[in-house]
């Protein structure tokens, strides 16, 4: 596990080292910890004036699991992510992060919780006045990590998203896809246990969108990161729920389709409509679902 040894400096850990081995768990030690959901919502309600945004939402994301949240614009998908970060507070219900209830956390209390979470915003949300290096290094600079360790960590993360060449560029020099990838690199600095993706492929061409999905798959399968992937694009769903990342004999990361060799159990889908969960389960169950709304959604009609 990437974050298993907190005594390691950033400089001592390399992405190659991380990618070279799939996660290994000591069952005896980690089992109770793994039973605890990374994210849990219990009957969460939120309304702005008369408009109901979330209406009794309950779900959980297990350690190392990816939850794909589907829904049309305005259905409340992004609200869920904002609540996990404590950027919005629910009117009723409870929210737990890694077993800790954060429902009524104050802003200073949330700062420590947010250290465990990486967030990838829709348009990247890079700081315009900072270079790619400073954007990715932001969290570490704030924490006062020594400059040489920051440099190693920033390069490691930019290598992970295949953008090491752009290290000195400013955000306005980057394409939409590059901005998202820098956003992912920034979110992954500090090895968060939870990563939230808020429509990271919106407005991107299909090959770039696939690259973003591959990064999410790599995080899920090789780094044991729990994640929520908010999207309304069915292509993302197809990649995330049918492909997995593994390391071949040459030590390279390759993506394979699930089938006889392996069946993905660490990815679930949740569909939101008008602030309520109308579906929760595996992709095969979604495809078989008879609900007319769900059928229209997955067939894009």
């Amino acid at each position: 596990m990437l974050s298993s040894n907190e005594n390691d400096t950033y400089a001592e850990r390399g992405i190659d080292e991380v990618e070279a081995s799939a996660p290994e768990f000591d069952d005896a030690v980690d089992a109770p910890d793994r039973m605890r959901p990374a994210i849990e919502f219990r009957d969460v309600h939120l309304a702005f004036d008369d408009k109901v945004i979330l209406d009794g939402v309950s779900f959980s994301v297990k350690k190392g699991q990816t939850k794909i949240v589907l829904g049309r614009s305005g259905s409340g998908k992004s609200t869920i992510i904002r609540m996990i970060l404590g950027l919005l507070k629910p009117d009723a219900g409870q929210i737990f992060i890694d077993g800790e209830e954060i429902t009524h956390h104050s802003e200073p209390d949330m700062m420590s919780v947010r250290q465990k979470i990486g967030m990838v915003f829709q348009e990247g949300a890079l700081f315009d006045s900072l270079s790619v290096y400073d954007n990715v290094a932001y969290r570490l600079l704030e924490q006062g990590v020594p400059e040489d360790e920051i440099d190693v960590e920033v390069r490691r993360m930019l290598r992970f998203v295949d953008l090491e060449d752009a290290i000195e560029k400013m955000p306005n020099e980057l394409s939409g896809g590059m901005r998202r990838r820098v956003g992912i690199a920034r979110a992954l600095v500090g090895d968060p246990q939870i990563v939230l993706f808020d429509e990271p492929t919106a407005g991107l061409d299909p090959p770039t969108a696939r690259t973003i999905c591959e990064l999410a798959i790599k995080l899920r399968d090789l780094q044991d990161v729990s994640s929520i992937f908010v999207t309304h694009e069915m292509n993302n769903l197809r990649y995330l729920s049918s492909e997995y990342a593994t390391v071949n004999d040459e030590g390279q990361v390759v993506y394979e389709k699930e089938g006889e060799k392996l069946c993905l159990i660490n990815t679930e889908i949740m569909m939101i409509r008008d602030g309520q969960i109308i579906f929760s389960g595996k992709d095969e169950e979604l495809q078989r679902n008879d609900d007319p709304y769900i059928r229209r959604f997955i067939h894009g009609t």
Binding site: R82, L85, L87, E107, P108, M111, S112, R114, Q115, I117, M119, F121, Q122, E123, A125, L126, F127, D128, Y138, R139, E142, R186
Partner: peptide, 14 residues
């Protein structure tokens, strides 16, 4: 409007 303030809060900065 470009969510940079949210990003700042998400990265643990007030």
């Amino acid at each position: 409007v470009s969510q940079q303030i949210d990003a700042m809060r998400a990265l643990g900065t007030d």
